[in-house]
Design a protein around this nucleic acid. Structure first.
Lengths: 335, 335
DNA sequence: CTGAAAGCGCTTACAG
DNA sequence: CTGAAAGCGCTTACAG
């Protein structure tokens, strides 16, 4: 034992002090089993007076429960996603904390299950929340195989996955429709990795809006997998050769780049070209002009995901798919 | 037991299968105590073949160790800090993972120790890393009192705190000196909460640069506690009434606001006024003009903090204060 | 309503 | 070099 460390008071100490058995103390705390209101009061009084906290590790071992959930956060993030993940985690933590659960963080690359695997094998968590989903998703497959309770933030195509997502499809469809009706059908679409589920949902929404307007989106105005600066620059160069009136960006990171490139080329927004983003992050907060975009509540998403997971951990059946709504925020960039 | 769940193989299973005692298996794995090379090999072969993983919870209870560290992340963050915290966490996780430790996340407000307290009382972690420090720091006080091993990312004035920080004092001093020598002494300083240790360090560096140049910084060109948009706007308004040539921003969130305000007022950077920031985050990446600033490696900071903490947990003595270096990155905004 | 005892899956002094 | 046994601090069937 290290210097200054105080011997922790255990359930035996409480039992001895009160002249009852450990069983009784345990029951008074958990409320399980029959126990007289009297002794319950007595025990609880003693516990609060002496600030006794049961050792969660021992409890874990006895119950095969850890009261931890694992949150898997992408390690290959781009800045723009950060506020989203952060907000989602704050939401998760808010719910988890209320239920006396803690969050074990797992940072992992797209195709890497090693970290998650270790945490699971080590029995360190009761369930998992994935903060990003892929079309081809090894983490989901792995969790499914192992039968671990988990929830994904973001949609998943796999059977039997409890998932919570914003309605990206409808959101993109609505925003695209607005542009189509008000201004133009010469719309370019720039997006990130096609392996992200969210990219697919947005793409579908975009196409659906055209279909609904009885038009066809032009294939060569759609650029996906723009995962770095150079790709984005090349895409914008391409676009400049064509006759377009609006650029839709699937996220604010891409949008931020696009705005910079346009400005360097002295192309004015919105006079010469309109711009909108599918994400309303603080990244573009100080942008001039302000940027039309979709707005999502990541905290709510996290809270919902956590509630679902805790329910699953308790063994309850839960709804497989939950879709949260969104908001279209029109600003200067599409005026 | 839930459907599909596989009974986990335990140390007893391994011992029985091999016809040895649990003690022997335990020793073969930990390497503690005398054991023949032969049996060790045999045990290890069996373990890898059958993919046996000891139950960390049981290990925790037996050893009073959790193999978890708590990372305390501010819940009242502003966007600009996010990449910093995120990078630091990635660094922490890299080291922790190597040593088979996991990260328990605690999101807490400036003056709130409740969350941290619960995690500690629950014996869920072996040590703590604080990602932000204050002049008046309740979390530090609390950890000190309880005798929990911990490390702060950021400086602390309290006695006996193991701390890792970038050398903000020198960094700000150097950047300020450069401005003083090359251009002007009409420099305004805008900063965040005066209760952040980092604000104090930067302020000192700023003043020291003046002193070294045998000048006095003007008190009424220094604005601290600019914690929201309105404050920043008011500060810039004030500055416009005075004769200044340069604005130093203590962080990129402030800087981003300042750039927006100047642009709205049609004040050109750097022609009319120079601007620099004490932080080189991706927030300003797409800014036009690009912004002169200081650059820090948060991942390295996290890695260092984690190494120190693990050392402390092992009971080793560690250096009380570690300062990491920085880089001054001159860009267009001070040309 | 209450308690003695076994058990969760490890580690580790102690004995051999 | 190896093992039987006690112990970590809880929970929970079982008996009363």
């Amino acid at each position: 034992m290290k210097e200054g460390e105080i011997k922790n008071i255990t359930i035996s100490d409480v039992a001895d002090a009160l002249g009852v058995s450990k069983t009784t103390v345990s029951r008074a705390m958990s409320g399980k089993g029959r126990i007289s209101e009297d002794t319950k009061q007595k025990v609880q009084a003693y516990i609060t007076a002496h600030d006794y906290k049961p050792n969660v590790i021992a409890k874990s071992l006895a119950q095969s429960k850890t009261f931890n959930i694992c949150v898997v956060m992408p390690g290959d993030y781009v800045l723009v996603d950060l506020p989203f993940f952060q907000e989602a985690i704050v939401g998760i933590q808010a719910i988890a904390g209320m239920m006396e659960y803690d969050i074990l963080l797992c940072v992992s690359q797209e195709n890497d299950v090693a970290g998650l695997e270790r945490i699971i094998s080590n029995h360190k968590v009761d369930g998992v929340i994935l903060l990003r989903t892929f079309v081809e998703d090894i983490q989901v497959q792995h969790l499914l195989e192992r039968g671990i309770p988990f929830v994904t933030v973001g949609s998943s195509n796999y059977k039997g996955v409890t998932q919570v997502d914003h309605d990206h499809f409808s959101a993109c469809k609505e925003l695209t429709s607005i542009i189509l009706m008000r201004y133009t059908n010469r719309i370019a679409l720039l997006g990130g990795s096609a392996n992200f589920m969210v990219t697919q949902s947005r793409l579908k929404g975009f196409c659906q809006a055209f279909k609904q307007a009885e038009q066809e989106p032009e294939k060569d105005l759609i650029f996906l997998n723009l995962e770095n600066k150079a790709y984005i620059e090349r895409a914008v160069e391409e676009l400049m050769k064509k006759q377009i009136d609006c650029i839709l960006c699937m996220d604010d990171a891409i949008c931020s780049q696009v705005l910079r490139i346009l400005r360097q080329k002295h192309i004015r927004v919105p006079q010469d070209i309109k711009v909108a983003s599918f994400y309303n992050s603080t990244i573009l907060e100080n942008s001039i002009p302000s940027v039309t975009s979709l707005s999502f509540d990541a905290r709510e998403l996290g809270m919902t995901a956590c509630k679902l997971l805790l329910n699953k951990i308790e063994g309850n059946r839960v709804k497989e798919r939950t879709l949260l709504s969104y908001e279209v925020v029109l600003k200067e960039s599409t005026k």
